[in-house]
Amino acid sequence: MVTPKKSRADDRTVSPLSRREFGALTVSAMAAPFALISRATASPPISATDVIDRIKKSIGVEWKPDTFDTIKAGDPATVVSGVVTTAIASMSVLRRAVDAGANLVITSEPTFYGRADARTPPAGRGGGRGAPPPPDTPPPSDPVYTAKNAFIEKHGLVVFRLNQHWRLRRPDPFATGLASALGWSKRIEAPGDVLRYSIGAASLSALAAELKKKLGTRGGIRVIGDPQTRVQTVALLPGSTPLAAALDALPSVDVIVGGEVREWESVEYARDVVASGQRKGLVLVGRIVSEEGGMSECARWLTTLVSEVPVRHIPAGDPYWSPS
């Protein structure tokens, strides 16, 4: 278990983003548990349901019931002591949330790995490849699911997924958040188009190095294109995007900075664009890393809705490393 002091140090290594916004919006969250307690007692109690209701009311897009944006774990009636937003509610993020005195975690990606986001391993899993298990066999116990559930129970956490509605908000908070993380917010090409930026000429290799530094990526950043290509205009494609997004963006900019794509789609398209002689590039920073800016935006927005308890963003960090 990390101490609060350690978790702040972690944040500095994971992403410079958290350092900046930390001071901007969550002084009380980080001060000390005492500050949390005194603040909580000074404000009327607010439940997880209350926070989620305010989100639904204020998000600016029609709330649809049949989406992934639901509570994944915990009791909705829980009195909230603090709110954490993140790209993915990993064990590490949950631990750091608890260290910060928060018990409501708002995550863009699943807490329990697959799209189903169920608190138990998928039935029939765990037997390896080959023959399917006999029907009605309960899934074998899984140490990761078990430990994560136990941690959530022990600390009374509530985990809420907010992805499909958040990305429909305009302007797209995942794009404005990524631009903000990169310090590009004022370099927007045309008013209203938060996907495109004019960043000043740089080589593709210098841009990649800048992205790696600013986003704190480790092994998850990958580039296509001649490293010496001069790039000036950028399209942002945070999250996971299909070929259509790259087809739409790359012809009109020098480089795409994206999260995750299918390698048989946008990667091969970008490779052929480059091979055709066009001086362009594609940089993939990873799905999780690309969404942290948007979830940092979410924390900023939530402070306008929730004044009773501290709200902060905790980045999950780049899952990948690269062997030397």
Partner: peptide, 9 residues
Amino acid sequence: QEADGGFDG
């Protein structure tokens, strides 16, 4: 994919 897939990941 990094998350939100059919399986664990």
